[in-house]
Nucleic acid binder design. Structure first.
Lengths: 266, 266
DNA sequence: TTGATCGGTTCATTATTGTAACCAGTGGTT
DNA sequence: AACCACTGGTTACAATAATGAACCGATCAA
């Protein structure tokens, strides 16, 4: 990590090493991965264990995320319930534009879909709730990265594989960074058949109180239906819903974001 | 806090101040509550905010739990899914003894019911999933405290109100501490109409990898049905299920606990 | 005006931390 | 057996980062 960081930050850096794909670490492995000394890592882990944020397997001596996070997550959900706040606006959005809406939260190297609303309509896109959405290949991923913290983007970019899910997928870091800059100038991301053929995603970030993306709301549309005018109409509705959810969470989107949303409606 | 603690521990102490009943704190209030200097608390909060563990309301300048805990909780649930691991044993338990089973996790000053299984039986106890179970008045609460960490017990005892929910509720700290010691000598707690009249709770702790209680599993029985022999049979089944869930979570109950369970079966 | 809050900053003092070397144990090779 | 390359964990001391009383500017009440 080069620069000096506070010890608390280091502890969180350790925590961030535990992911869905690598939930358990031995001491040496973890210290190497986090770029920390074994002694340092162990001291931090002992504090984390005392707080219940990590546990140690009694036999294998491996470390894993502890139960304290469950408690805190319940406190957070009890006071600022993300899902129950995000659902009503998503349903209104789906009813208003007649397309499938999905809400996502970030995992280590992909987005996880946590809510889906399907419209009352014969033809509609099916979103698989169990499939992780890669950052480089989906509208949600692009919208999230465009408004995520610089550190998060660095980490996501360095751990993404740029796999081509279709012939339209962005497969190079440079192209992706350009795309993110463009998205940042507006308020939403579009992906035309870059993940599934015949589908167009239109996504916008939900912000936390620090002004960074903490999730996304997106419409998954049949490509055959989309015209430039319709895209703008949907984008306006999606960004409006993103603003609505962000405010319901007690946060406020950046002023530039609001401005871009207004220009869509005009 | 008197003695010196590591800075990471202080950061977690701050986090633990955020509860369901008090989810938002101003800087000065929080520093006072945590027994820390304002400057210290602010620096810790800044680190916590950088990690996403707390957020600050842009207007009110109050702090609250951030979204990072949701991410970690999802990692934990993806690798060691508590509910999906606890459900099957609970269902078997309910079927085997024919009583309502409920599984609880700790909140700040009460237990939260996170799963309920009702038996196929005309007469059974109804457990309200939204009602917090006070530590001093329920079998689950007693079982949890008896096997919780000393710090947790201290905190819980100092913040409990010892309210008498019925005429059988334990209402003094001394009696409670005695009861906990007795429970610790065995493997389960019984509460006879100490929370709801006509119901008897029989509860046992689920352990985390550090050997402390991280949750409970309990049977809520109609008092009129219970005999000493039946109580022992149910207690044996409940403690067995607690051991089963603990092991499914990748942890191991203390040897004394296992021994006490065996003696029940004999 | 005074005084008592609040959120946030400063800086000399002090305690924690990083570093590297060292244990003791384990499993595989020769 | 002897050796090697690991592992998890510990220790000493120099280097560094945390600490907290005092301080600032705002705000609010009397």
């Amino acid at each position: 990590m080069g620069k000096s960081m506070g010890t608390v930050d280091k502890a969180f850096h350790l925590l961030s090493c535990f992911t869905v794909t690598e939930p358990e670490w031995g001491l040496s492995d973890l210290a190497r991965r986090a770029g920390q000394d074994k002694a340092t890592a162990l001291r931090l882990l002992n504090s984390l264990m005392a707080g219940g944020f990590v546990e140690q397997d009694p036999d294998a001596r491996t470390f894993r995320i502890g139960t304290a996070v469950l408690k805190l997550a319940r406190v957070r959900e009890a006071s600022f319930p993300f899902l129950s706040l995000a659902k009503p606006p998503s349903e209104r959005l789906s009813a208003s534009i007649g397309e499938t809406i999905h809400v996502c939260l970030p995992e280590a190297d992909a987005l996880a879909t946590v809510h889906i609303v399907e419209p009352q309509r014969a033809t509609r896109v099916y979103v698989d709730p169990s499939q992780p959405l890669p950052y480089h290949a989906t509208a949600s991923g692009l919208a999230f990265l465009a408004f995520a913290s610089a550190e998060f983007v660095d980490h996501a970019l360095s751990s993404t594989d740029f796999r081509a899910h279709t012939e339209h997928t962005i497969t190079s870091r440079e192209v992706l960074i350009d795309a993110l800059a463009k998205i940042r100038g507006g308020a939403y991301a579009v992906s035309s058949s870059s993940f599934e053929l015949e589908t167009i995603g239109i996504a916008s970030p939900i912000f936390d109180a620090s002004g960074h993306a903490m999730g996304t709301v997106a419409a998954a549309c049949l490509a055959s239906r989309i015209t430039p005018e319709l895209e703008t109409r949907i984008a306006s509705a999606v960004t409006g819903t993103a603003i609505e959810i962000t405010r319901a969470l007690g946060a406020e989107p950046p002023a530039r974001f609001i401005q871009s949303h207004r220009e869509l409606g005009a």
